[in-house]
Design a binder for these strands. Structure first.
Lengths: 222, 222
DNA sequence: TTCGTCATGTAATGGGTTACATGATTAC
DNA sequence: GTAATCATGTAACCCATTACATGACGAA
């Protein structure tokens, strides 16, 4: 009944926070903007949406505009079900955003968490990035020792696979180093939050990213 | 019936082909030598082993050596169940090895397939490598167009995530290019397979790997 | 008119983990 | 003697996919 996916729930709430959407559109955003990592199917998404509605975090808007004209009549298409985040849903999402525990930096979660860093407070960003980095470093350590013990007994292809795998992890660590450095630089520029956790801490100003190319953030009017 | 994992089945058969092992040891090999990718639990492994036995691809050796002395008496340990590949199992594994279809180069399978390239014939290796490469290239193409369409509407973090993701894929493509080149060079050295596909093509001589040149440090101990 | 895309959903199935149950052996 | 590791297994659950069912619209 529940279908408490965690990661999907988080992503859906986060996307709907920007603007209401219907399921079909949501899935596309999930697999392009956030995508790369996972490609959720409708069989996963729709039941999840229903569950979120049951929790009171979303509301369905089957009908049309404020005049009561059904969407079907307006668009001609099959009645879309537009999902909108409720205040309770927004609150819940912000609670999830504030978590910086181990779950946040595991393989499956980290990408999605990162995708919503724009809505995440700077100190949570830091903890997540550092957590991820130390996670990868301990993994690297394991790989190194395991490799040292078995190097002789492995054939060339297995060895090459191992080498490439380790290089990939090392590369991600370097990436994280850059990001952490940038975050720290950004933090130094402005006095960091005194003590209180302001409830309006979203819109957490984008403190720092390595300069590749930024561009602008025009408002998400749709 | 049960638990036809495909990838696990393949890896188990491949490891047992080298030498008989019991479940516990098998799992460790699975998560170190082949590891990095997946970490199978006993809840997955043991039922899988039973299923493979039921198929006649493995036999359990609960007892001791040829003299009939039980292993318990020999080692003192709890009776291990040593699994040994049957001729039918070996045949089955070699059949799996010869497949070079799309399943072989998808994310989940490719790593394990590569790990057993030492047992794979050269032309299959080529097809798998090239298949993987074109798979990644088409993924890259999708990412590029999707990025081009939505670049303006994405915030800096999402953009950075996308950029890093694409770079990772590009990096793997370059890796594959090197590998393919090496394979081709190895092939040129001694023109194999005149026209027919030799049935005894296993023990495929390790034709080519980038011999630790060009950026690959052979010794990670710093 | 047929095909591609939009749009929503469900039932069966798959593939895997977690937690549990059990117990022997080794190292301290 | 007790903790860690070796060693095998099962049942309950979880998350997600696949295949299916339905149907409307736009364009060729």
């Amino acid at each position: 009944m529940s279908r408490r996916s965690g990661i999907l729930e988080f992503a859906v709430l986060g996307l709907l926070r920007e603007s209401p959407m219907h399921g079909y559109e949501l899935r596309k955003r999930l697999n392009t903007s956030l995508g790369v990592f996972r490609a959720f199917s409708y069989g996963t998404l729709y039941p999840c949406l229903k569950a979120l509605v049951a929790h009171g975090w979303l509301v369905e808007e089957t009908g049309g505009g404020p005049d009561g004209v059904p969407a079907t009549a307006l668009t001609g298409r099959r009645a879309k079900i537009v999902y909108r985040l409720t205040p309770a849903g927004k609150e819940h999402f912000e609670e999830l955003l504030s978590h910086s525990g181990p779950e946040a930096w595991e393989d499956e979660h980290f990408g999605v968490r990162f995708a919503f860093f724009g809505q995440t407070s700077r100190d949570v960003r830091m903890r997540v990035l550092e957590g991820r980095r130390s996670r990868l470093e301990e993994r690297l350590e394991k790989m190194r020792t395991s490799l040292a013990r078995t190097r002789e007994r492995l054939d060339d292809y297995t060895l090459e696979l191992q080498r490439h795998g380790m290089e990939s992890v090392e590369r991600e660590v370097r990436w994280l180093n850059e990001l952490i450095e940038s975050e720290r630089a950004g933090r130094d520029q402005r006095a960091p939050e005194p003590t209180a956790q302001g409830e309006n801490d979203q819109s957490a100003d984008t403190g720092g990213l390595p300069r590749h190319r930024g561009g602008s953030r025009p408002d998400p009017s749709e």
